[in-house]
């Protein structure tokens, strides 16, 4: 399946180019546009971005693999990011992680997401869910699945 930017995307890219000293800077913004569209970054998308901003596909690929939020594969289940860093751990993230094991979701362990004061927490589709308990997790997933 090939990847193309639609006219809206192209206008956005054109506008963004005026905001930076070099089109190289559009690498991350374009990757976000691609991932928002398709849920992951396909090799075709990398080629399309390369065409727009002039960076070599290999360099863009190297960028994709550096940042943990970019995915090279289409997700097959709902992704749940659970923070396992210190403040969350002190407040019971192990319990939440254990509880999530029984659910039909892809549990991704992540490092501190800046919700330490409302720990434990998880993030699903860019949205934070905080002060979690097992019951709360059940209710949230019921709504999303």
């Amino acid at each position: 399946m090939s990847f193309t930017f639609n006219q809206d995307d192209l206008n956005k890219i054109k506008e963004l180019k005026t905001r930076y000293p070099s089109p190289d800077a559009l690498c991350l913004p374009c990757l976000w546009m691609a991932q928002t569209k398709e849920g992951y970054i396909s090799i075709d998308a990398i080629d399309a971005i390369s065409e727009q901003i002039g960076l070599a596909p290999m360099q863009i690929y190297g960028v994709v693999t550096f940042y943990t939020m970019f995915h090279l594969q289409k997700p097959d289940r709902l992704q749940v990011d659970v923070c396992k860093t210190l403040s969350c751990k002190l407040c019971g993230s192990d319990e939440i992680l254990k509880h999530l094991k029984s659910k039909d979701v892809y549990v991704n362990h992540v490092e501190c997401l800046g919700s330490c004061g409302t720990a434990p927490m998880m993030q699903i589709k860019d949205k934070n869910y905080e002060n979690l308990t097992n019951e709360k997790v059940d209710a949230i997933l019921e709504e999303l699945l």
């Binding site: 991350l28 913004p29 990757l31 976000w32 943990t68 992540v110």
Partner: peptide
């Protein structure tokens, strides 16, 4: 201009 990172401390 906001520039969004992608998960790297």
């Amino acid at each position: 201009t906001i520039h969004r990172g992608a998960g790297a401390y």
